[in-house]
Write a protein that binds this DNA or RNA. Sequence first.
DNA 1: CTAGCCTTGAAC
DNA 2: GTTCAAGGCTAG
Length: 807
Amino acid sequence: MELSYFTEPTTRLDRDSQQDRDRQRDQESQRDLDTQRDNQRDQDTPQKQDTPREQELQQDQDTQQDQDMHLFRDFKLKKRKITDLFPGLRFVERARSPVSDIGDGVSTDSGYEGTSTEDDGSPAGEPMNSDLCLDSSISDNKDLLSSDGGVPPKADLHLQSAVSTERDRNDMCEAWNATRRNATENMAQGEDWEPLPRPLLQERSHSAHCSTSNSSRYPNVENNKPLVSHALGDYGKITSINPDFASLNNSLPCYGFSPSMVVAPLFYNQMIAMQCFPNMTVTAETLRKMPGPSATWGFEKRPRVEPSIQHRSGGFSVPQFGEAPVSGRPERDEDNKGQGNSQTSSPFSKTDVESMAYCHQQCDSAGDSENGSPGAAKIATSKTGCVEDRSVCGICGDRGSGLHYGIITCEGCKGFFKRTVQNRRIYYCISQGHCDVNKLERNKCQYCRFKKCLQQGMVVAAVREDRMPGGRTTGPVYDLYKIKRKTKKKETKVAKRYQSSVQQLSTLSKHNGFLVPALPPATRKVPSEGAVAQSSSQDARWLTVQSPNTLLVNPILSAFHMLQLLVNIDNHGELMSIYCSNLAPGDSGQIMLNDRSKEYQNNLMCWFNKLQFQKQALVNLTKEKWHHVLLLSLCAHHCWKLDSSNSGGGKDGKSNSSGCEAVVLHQGNSSSNHQRHLHEVCMHKIQQMLSCAFLRTVTQSEIRAEAGDTVDRVAQVMQALCKLAPTLEEYVCLKLVLLLNLAEGEEAEEERQALQDQFVQILQEVIEIKHPQRSMRLGRLLLWIPQIEAAANQLLQSNLIHIPFLC
DNA sequence: CTAGCCTTGAAC
DNA sequence: GTTCAAGGCTAG
Ligand SMILES: [Zn+2]
Ligand SMILES: [Zn+2]
């Protein structure tokens, strides 16, 4: 393979900091330097020479061919890897094109933030800078590749030497120049290149705040209107997954490099993309949405300065956030807090507790000890402190440095969130929006990091538009904190229940002989060379239902791998616990039922949302079949519940299942008539509920007339599936088969069919392994699909979707 | 860009 | 005066 043309996506570190310095200097000396002169000076700035890293590169030899990318801790290794992959490439040093940033300005977002449109507003006047870049070894390209203003800074990369000829190059240059012209024109017409220019750096001096006192006390506010708006609505965009990669395989690994690492991740990821998808043309447009532009993998962070153990006295004795817990002794922090609380305990009682924002926060984070005595609060703080550990970042798990924007985060996540909101940045995920966000990998995907920030309850509005430092957060923002906190608490509850149910299910699964998913086929190779990094650990976390095209080209996931994914994303444990949660008999039954049903549906929806169909048509199509899956799921859980209670409680009590204890009357039924029993149970419960609801006795005949048929049908299906007793693996497959079953529209018909076939095939394989002696099992399971559909439809039509919960 | 450290300032 | 969550600065 040969890459005949390449200009790197640039590292802007040097220039950025240079600019900052310039800016500062400007502010210090003379604020109204006209932009032209400014640029002029920029261009005159002496170039900073990078150290010749290629020498280092050559020194590093004997690369281990199969070394996993995860081992790439430092830049040298990464660089070496790249050179290994692409021997035609070498690192060169060259001056940056003065215009090259136009391109970046247009296609910014993933690269270092396009600064061309900022501040000076003269895009063409970027300072010359010496960057390392990757270059092809074709020597006679030198001219073109050097700082010639007419060369596109970011050429499309085609795999097969697409731009190797002179003509290609000319075409490209011409295209580039046209783009540049257009861009410049648009610029002149005031088109918004970036949604919002980065707000000017504030002067540090205090005077700015006060000087305009007649209009506002805040620097960026005039007439009570912020000069810089956040436009929260824009954040909707962030929640979209990079459409460019919709058709790509989900296992495309991506890595981010640090700005100081010279090789921008864009390029590296481009390499990977090309390797994985030889048939695809990886364009600059595609690439600009690659994640992790400034990731700091292998980047040596500035070491935290641990405070000396000595207690600071007087003056600034307040421990700063970063240093609060002295390393190795987290109790100190706790102690302090406990002390603080016990000390403030009296103030608490003195002051109006509820109105104290700051005290409130402490109470809140300590759990739910609002009415408790101060003492209780203290205990809660130290004991339940783990619920919201002050020392752990809620986003990445790094050391927390306090409450930031609503939750406890580290300095990094705090800053990241702030920057994102302030600069209204929009991110994309190269993957499916489920990247891990932890201390080590938090910089790999900004999209997922920010998503997690929002999910965890960080409040966008807490980033101040006026940039006024200090003070306390009160008012609407503080209310938002409270709301988010409440929501999160609720979620934690659900999660807890899930935990307990998982245990329950694990015993169940043993009993059922679930197939323990094998580890992903480690030998799996992406089309070209094993050099491509494995994303092994991550594959298991998301499922992309592959579009048939991709599947044909790239059948990366084996049936069992897919099965494993399916099992992994399935939240059966959670569903099971909800399903099993006891239905309180009596008056509140109706409410309970509704709640339970809703909770169950919500959880099922969570599962559904984890499926990433690659065509919108498929999403729409499968959404229509939502209730089918709901019924199937309920059937399965009903079956498993029966099963677990049987194995636990004895052999003869089939009908005396735990969920049905409310209907003691019916427990004498023989197991031979399970269906009738179900029917009667349902009828009875419905009777109970309706009687409660209408405050009168509703007769069974009334119900029978109204819903008897439906109940019958549902009971029939339930009973049949109970008899078949699907295993977890069969269940997860069936759900997808059901979702992908015949649809009315013609849209995406081919894809639908192909996908369904795939899952049927997986189902078949599962059965062959689990039930080798039962050749008819597949057919039997599939035969019930129409029945499930019919019953579910009926439930939906008669608005009785809660009924299955009664069984 | 990232993230550690530092300054601010309203509420206590 | 003390707190602590904002914002700012800047080495990497
Ligand atoms: Zn963090
Ligand atoms: Zn991601």
